[in-house]
Simulated scan of single mutants.
Amino acid sequence: MKEKIPTTLFSGFFGVGKTTAIASLLSRKPDEEKWAILVNEFGNVPVDQIVFKDNASDVLIREIPGGCMCCVANIPMKKAITDVLSLAKPDRILIEPTGLGHPAGIFDELNEDPLDKQLDIGSIICLADPRFALDPRIQKVDIFNDQINLADILIASKSDLVSSKDLKKFYSWAHDLFPPKLIISNISNGNIPLEYLDNKKHIVHDSFFSNDHKNHASSTTLEIEKISPRRPSRSINESAGYIGSGWIFSKKDIFDLEGLRRCLGPFGLFQGNNFERIKGVFRVGQGWVLLDRINGELSIKPITYRRDSRLEVIIPQNSKISWDQTEKKILECIN
């Protein structure tokens, strides 16, 4: 009988550091092993896979855009995994759902025929930002509770940015959770111990969600062939109470870095509670940068990607944002 492939499912809300954690694991991957990553982004403009490619060029990456991978349809996820198994024959698979991903639904899909005969599903690893995880508004979100509920390993991410008092509160809350977690720990810079990938699944129980959540996603299609300088293609995706707008810009568009910082930073277009996540890759001068914003934190760092510029913005459904005006302001950042 063919040996099953170790597979780890990551979960966590927007901005908790899932991509950073997987990128860190890739940087420490044993040289003799072949890994594959299945990445699911909320919108139709993928950015996370670019981050992965920047950290490990020898890893096979497959993406499923447009919402929760178990909601957009069973076929894309199963086909993506089947393709990965046939193309790469990996020694290990890592799966990163969108921040709105329902781990119970994804876990169920992975345990259905024929994937259950091919994959050895390990512990579900959930990351939570200890600065926000105990916020009453977050605690009321069903998706957040679903992610926490199904986790075998619960990790306080970005622990270098939290006070010792708040970290102690997080641990106290986490230790009171039922079912109890296999491991509760904290990390900085995404440095999850490699050995966590070999822990087995031990929590089995129902999700907070019924199956009717699978049918509530809508999106518009990117028109890549129509992209030209200062004329990007835009796609809107709507699901689970959130709206994502993604843009792909021409490779010839060169952005002003300070303009982007003013436009997309804490004092720009998106302030307060009118957005959830901003993530993009932009050509600035002779190079490209990765721009990442969650709450008031803006991170900008170099990246080796060179194909085009792209941006994904995720907002709550009730936010009063004009995508036309947003696009106009972003285009003003082009030199």
Rank of each mutant, 00 (worst) to 15 (best):
A88D: 11
I95P: 09
K78I: 12
N74G: 12
M77L: 15
P76M: 01
A73D: 15
A73H: 07
P90Y: 00
D58S: 15
A56I: 03
T82R: 10
I93S: 12
I75F: 12
V84T: 13
D54P: 01
A73C: 06
L87S: 15
G67R: 08
C70N: 02
I61T: 09
M69W: 05
D83R: 13
I93H: 05
G66Q: 10
D58C: 12
E63V: 14
E63P: 10
L100N: 00
C68K: 01
P90M: 03
E96F: 07
S57L: 06
S57H: 12
I50G: 11
G99N: 06
C71N: 13
L100K: 00
C68W: 04
P97F: 03
I61F: 06
V59P: 10
G99R: 02
D91M: 08
K78F: 09
P97Q: 03
V72W: 12
D48R: 07
K53E: 13
G99A: 02
N74L: 09
K79P: 01
I75M: 09
V84P: 07
H102M: 06
S57F: 03
L100F: 02
L94C: 13
C71F: 10
T98R: 02
K89Q: 09
R62S: 09
V59A: 05
G99T: 00
T98A: 04
L94N: 13
I81W: 02
I81L: 14
A88G: 02
L94K: 14
L87G: 10
F52Y: 14
K79F: 05
D91T: 02
K53T: 08
P65Q: 10
K78R: 13
R62F: 03
I93V: 13
I75G: 12
I50Y: 14
C71L: 11
P90K: 03
L60K: 11
E96I: 04
L60S: 08
M77Q: 05
D83P: 01
A88T: 12
V72L: 10
C70I: 00
A56R: 08
I50F: 08
V59G: 06
S86G: 08
K78Q: 15
K79G: 06
I61E: 03
P65C: 09
K53H: 12
M69Y: 06
I64R: 01
C71E: 14
N55C: 13
D54F: 11
M77R: 10
F52S: 11
M77V: 03
K89C: 03
K78T: 15
E63G: 07
I95Y: 05
L94F: 04
A56T: 06
N55H: 11
Q49I: 00
G66K: 11
K53Y: 11
S86E: 14
L87D: 14
V84I: 13
G101F: 02
L85V: 04
I81R: 02
R92F: 01
F52G: 06
I64L: 03
G99Q: 05
E63A: 14
G67I: 02
G101W: 00
N74T: 13
I50S: 08
V51H: 06
I93E: 07
I75A: 14
G101K: 00
K79Q: 15
I81P: 01
I64V: 15
I81D: 03
L87W: 05
D54R: 08
G66A: 05
Q49A: 01
C68V: 04
N74R: 15
Q49M: 03
K79T: 15
A56W: 03
A80Q: 00
M69D: 05
N74F: 11
I75C: 02
A73N: 12
D54V: 09
